[in-house]
């Protein structure tokens, strides 16, 4: 998945060695390549700010994939059937894979895996706020696939054309895998909607709780995202927050109709003149409050993530010790 406002300020990227004082012809070459819609590769000269922006964005994106495993991971042991359990495991494993592609892409910019994990585990780095809300029942898992992955796809498809080569290539891989995520969620909800009144009510309740939070995933309105213009200029961002949000809404309304749920926005209606759906006010105060760490699950998510990492320490140590031993044995045999 999963990106949100990817211009949320955090600490990552600040410690990168400055590669400043570059001769202006390098800068000119960079600008020319960007203007020609060319791609930048790791060995190429790039402005510090471009590098820092990418490190921040790609690492936030990676963290979001990793933390994004947690709300759904909670439901693996409680999935309603073996089929749904296998599907959910596959999806959660994909998200872990997405995190790994993205960490690798960020490392090509000169940051290290340790730095990024330290940023996440210490709470300095941000990740998508959508994962700081609880998954209360099985309908939430379906809604996450349909709406959260759906929103993520809207965000990620334009990133396949990002000016930074390794990020763009990672996104191509990610996007290929996301489509199953959204479809399995939607299908799980379709099944529930054919069930009892109680099951239908669960789906509607989950949609009610997640709808507005999904709209906020696209980040603050264009007028309030000062980094956005620079990101667009550099070909990192291709479509603005508001435009992506509108695309998502326009695509989702008909899907909701087929599913038989109501989207919880009384102002949501087709605007013939604009050729788009109008929609109501997003609660940005709540969004920022969650970004700042005060959402319902921020502490729990981080604690779970840190515990998982620490619990895996012995595995990393053992693999390390084994590799060292094998190497020593090979050396001895060669001698």
């Amino acid at each position: 998945m999963y990106t949100q406002a990817m211009d949320i300020p955090d600490e990552s990227g600040k410690k990168l060695a400055a590669v400043s004082n570059a001769p202006s012809d390098q800068e000119a070459a960079f600008e020319a390549r960007i203007d020609a819609d060319g791609r930048i590769e790791p060995q190429d000269w790039m402005p510090d700010a471009y590098r820092r922006t990418l490190v921040r964005q790609i690492s936030q994106h990676a963290h979001s994939e990793i933390v994004g495993m947690l709300p759904e991971g909670n439901w693996i042991s409680r999935a309603p059937s073996l089929k749904r359990k296998a599907i959910l495991i596959a999806k959660v494993q994909d998200e872990g894979g997405h995190g790994l592609y993205l960490y690798s892409a960020a490392e090509t910019l000169g940051t290290s895996r340790e730095q990024m994990l330290e940023g996440l585990h210490s709470g300095k780095a941000k990740y998508s706020s959508i994962f700081n809300y609880p998954t209360l029942n099985w309908a939430d898992v379906g809604v996450i696939g349909w709406l959260v992955d759906g929103a993520a796809i809207m965000n990620q498809v334009p990133l396949c054309r990002c000016s930074y080569g390794p990020y763009a290539r990672a996104m191509v891989r990610v996007c290929k895998e996301e489509s199953f995520h959204q479809r399995q969620g939607y299908e799980a909800l379709l099944v529930m909607m054919k069930g009892t009144d109680e099951q239908r009510a669960m789906v509607q309740d989950a949609v009610n709780r997640y709808w507005w939070k999904c709209l906020a995933m696209f980040g603050p309105p264009d007028a309030d995202s000062p980094h956005s213009a620079q990101g667009m200029r550099w070909g990192i961002k291709r479509i603005s927050n508001d435009d992506l949000r509108q695309k998502f809404i326009d695509a989702t309304v008909p899907q909701a109709k087929v599913l038989g749920v109501t989207l919880p926005d009384p102002e949501l209606k087709w605007n013939e003149a604009r050729g788009h759906y109008d929609y109501g006010q997003i609660d940005w105060a709540e969004f920022w409050n969650t970004v700042e760490g005060n959402g319902p699950c921020n502490k729990e998510r981080l604690a779970t993530r840190v515990k998982a990492h620490n619990d895996g320490q012995w595995v990393r140590d053992a693999a390390q010790a084994y590799a060292r031993k094998q190497k020593e044995r090979a050396l001895k045999e060669a001698a």
Binding site: D94, S104, A170, A323
Partner: peptide, 24 residues
């Protein structure tokens, strides 16, 4: 070339590459 990963040794790198890059 399809990407990179961290691993303790070559055998583990192969295992991880299978899980990370060839799930389908």
């Amino acid at each position: 070339h399809c990407g990179s990963l961290h691993a303790a040794d070559a055998a583990q790198a192969l295992h991880m590459a299978r899980d990370v890059y060839t799930r389908r």
